[in-house]
Design a protein around this nucleic acid. Sequence first.
RNA 1: GGUGGGGUGGUCGAGUGGUUAGGCAACGGUCUGCAAAACCGUGUACGCGGGUUCGAAUCCCGUCCUCACCUCCA
Length: 474
Amino acid sequence: MTLRFYDSATASVRDFTPVHPGEARIYYCGATVQGAPHIGHVRSGLVFDQLSRWLTYRGYKVTTVRNVTDIDDKILVNSTASFEPDFTGEHPAEEWWALAYRFERVFGAAYASLNIAPPTYEPRATGHIPEMFALIQRLIDRGHAYPATDGCGDVYFDVRSWENYGALTRQKIDDMQDAPDADPRGKRDPRDFALWKAYKEGEPVTASWDSPWGKGRPGWHLECSAMAGKYLGETFDIHGGGLDLRFPHHENEMAQSQAAGYGFANFWMHNGLVNYEGEKMSKSIGNIITPAQMLEAARPLVVRYYLGQAHYRSVLDYHPTSLEEARVAVERVEAFLAATRDYHREDAAVPEAFAEAMDDDLNIPKALAALHAGVRAGNAALAAGESAQDAAEQVYAMAKVLGLVELMSFSQAGAAANEPGEHAALDSLIQTMLTQRAEAREAKDWARADQIRDALAAAGITVKDGASGSTWSL
RNA sequence: GGUGGGGUGGUCGAGUGGUUAGGCAACGGUCUGCAAAACCGUGUACGCGGGUUCGAAUCCCGUCCUCACCUCCA
């Protein structure tokens, strides 16, 4: 079995052949830090985290780049400042850059809480203005970009000059529906898009850079082309992002970079979106679910399992019962691993069925079937009084490569509840009650035994009677 | 109008010609004082209409419905 992925550009599953043998270089679109993330953003980050982990397991040296778009129309709109720098600390409003930094950290915290590994590089658009100048100049020199014909100071990409425009999404320029509010300005074609946006009266001066074509700021699509090239080279392996970015963003990126003479991405991988009971999540509908809200409803382990359980290309439709179902499923795995801690080995191999599923365009639903089969086999062995070592090693390896292990209670550094100290008294109290119950059971005083069990249950504590005594869990 | 996805048993969700995907829920059994947990077992699905085939969820034709993108969007 060879590793293969679905490539959006060719609409087909292709064998993965890296540009540089043994390496995998991946660029995927991160956030425009104009506001707080919703779980759709997190799903995208999670998908490419899963991909990176699998490629790493397969022995590739993985380099990932996830950009931060920290200059954009919406960031300016959402900031409430007067747009002038203020060092007094008395300014009541928030400057655009402060807003961008603030939300960049909110995104970072959301990723971290779900054990989504940070990318190798996380470049900010504002830190790569010179690279963008160079790319614009190169496009002008090659006849694929031009300063606005009305002298407004914008620089546009000339879509008619690039015969492959539309190749990524297999669309013809003339078939595209005109935008209802198409503003031709100084464009040769309404489809031409801005590489550089000229400074306009009323905008913050701090959000403007001096370019050879006048003061202004970069167009959104240009940022990614410039940064991908800088960190990953002219031609790299995989470009990812949400399905909604295929057009125009990725189409434009591809056109810019290839028109500039670069190979750009060999594979385009797009993750499906998250719906809420059949509807796309969006601010206008008001059905947004944030990571913070989800983490109030469930543990990070459960949220990660839930968001990562579907195939990455399918729509993930959230229902109110979804998290509870995920909880039961993943805690089964957790309980098995907690009971077989002696067999956790960092170098353990994943079973073949799991590996084949993962190699096949990251078929995680199928891989999860292997995970659950392993848990069942392990539990069956335990129930039969046999060794669960083989199953435990494999299940651990699978949970590890899926990024779940670090979020499980037995391995978490932050499993503070298990540490002695403030909870010691509580543990002691529960142990006392279990001892009393054991005595009652010994005396076959079932009423008394059940009374104690009910009392613990009322406090959210589940009692399990085993051969070697009773245990409890929250 | 263009482009690309979907419609699978109670539910979520895999599956490109013929053997059980899997999870959750449900039911029966083992275990247990009773439970819980665990294990064993049960469900016989594939939008609709044709066609190809010994055989189709899977291929072909038609048809209905639905989602996304074409405007900022993970």
